[in-house]
């Protein structure tokens, strides 16, 4: 049994390259991360390479799709089986290399499905992070150029590094920090810095949060209440990041009454303004006669 430590996609790739070159099968590898090191002594990759006289320079050609899915799966966090992802990735790599290069096309294969599930979960997490991060300006009195924005977010997977480029390309002429338990990203309009994760900091309300809530409450149509549809796209676990979420309960509760009110309030005479304003009636009559032509 070879015990191999991997904490990131890069480390996994290096190890996988060596193992594959040395012809070590997935069944003979035990994957672990630094958190649990000590359970088994980690093997020295160089010694594997040296001992096994690796088939010279294992340049790996694998489908590009595998690499991009593997990068995502590497960010996957499963507290109960933290290293299963590394095992799945190596087993698939082995199969692509030695058994069937079209392995990824076996859409109902358990390992292919596991890879898909992990990369999909990471994708979804990335998507939700892009959607639900909310920046708060911490120094509203400063000039636009010097304003600084921070956001606190807890993604389900370790996706800060993977998602940072999106925020850089979008909020380019802003200074900001996105803080998460799995890593933080900081941007000063020219340089991206990554730092280790932190615990939830204190972040103040932003003056625009009130405007945003006003918008949210008024764009809602009480005649179409469908709370389940909302919750399936915006599960409750995200609500703590969203200033607008405090409105949800009241909007839902008062929806029926609001609709009743509309229906009860009766109808309005369409001539109401026309009879009192010659200019309105004149404007409308001109258009109406044109339309009859």
């Amino acid at each position: 049994m070879y015990s191999i430590t991997a904490n990131s996609f890069g480390e996994w790739r290096n190890a996988a390259r060596t193992l594959l070159g040395a012809g070590i099968s997935p069944q003979a590898v035990h994957w672990q991360s630094d958190q649990q090191a000590g359970l088994f002594d980690s093997c020295n990759l160089e010694s594997i390479a040296a001992n096994k006289q690796a088939s010279a320079s294992p340049t790996l050609t694998v489908p590009a799709q595998f690499i991009s899915q593997a990068k995502k799966a590497s960010c996957f966090i499963d507290i109960n089986k933290p290293n299963e992802k590394w095992a799945v990735l190596y087993s698939l790599l082995w199969r692509i290399r030695h058994i069937d290069k079209h392995t990824l096309l076996l859409k109902s294969d358990p390992e292919v499905q596991a890879l898909q599930r992990m990369s999909k979960a990471v994708n979804r997490d990335k998507h939700k992070m892009k959607a639900f991060v909310r920046f708060k300006c911490v120094n509203e009195d400063e000039s636009q150029r010097d304003r600084y924005y921070t956001a606190w977010f807890e993604p389900a997977h370790a996706i800060m590094e993977l998602t940072a480029p999106f925020f850089v390309q979008r909020f380019t002429s802003m200074n900001w920090s996105i803080l998460t338990p799995h890593g933080c990203a900081h941007w000063n309009q020219s340089q991206l810095t990554l730092s280790p994760g932190i615990e939830r900091p204190e972040i103040k309300e932003d003056q625009y949060d009130e405007f945003w809530r006003a918008y949210y409450c008024n764009i809602f149509n009480p005649a179409r209440l469908k709370e389940q549809a909302m919750q399936s796209e915006m599960p409750k676990k995200y609500w703590k990041y969203l200033p607008e979420a405090t409105c949800i309960k009241d909007l839902s509760r008062s929806a029926a009454a609001a609709v009743d009110n509309m229906v009860q309030s009766g109808t309005t005479n369409s001539e109401r303004v026309r009879t009192s304003s010659k200019s309105v009636a004149g404007f409308q009559d001109k258009l109406r006669s044109r339309n009859r032509e």
Binding site: K130, F220, L225, K226, E227, E233
Partner: peptide
């Protein structure tokens, strides 16, 4: 490709 929905109102519509 995909647009981003930044919020959902209780009518199930995306914002």
């Amino acid at each position: 490709g995909m647009g981003i929905c930044h919020s959902y109102t209780p009518d199930g519509r995306c914002i």
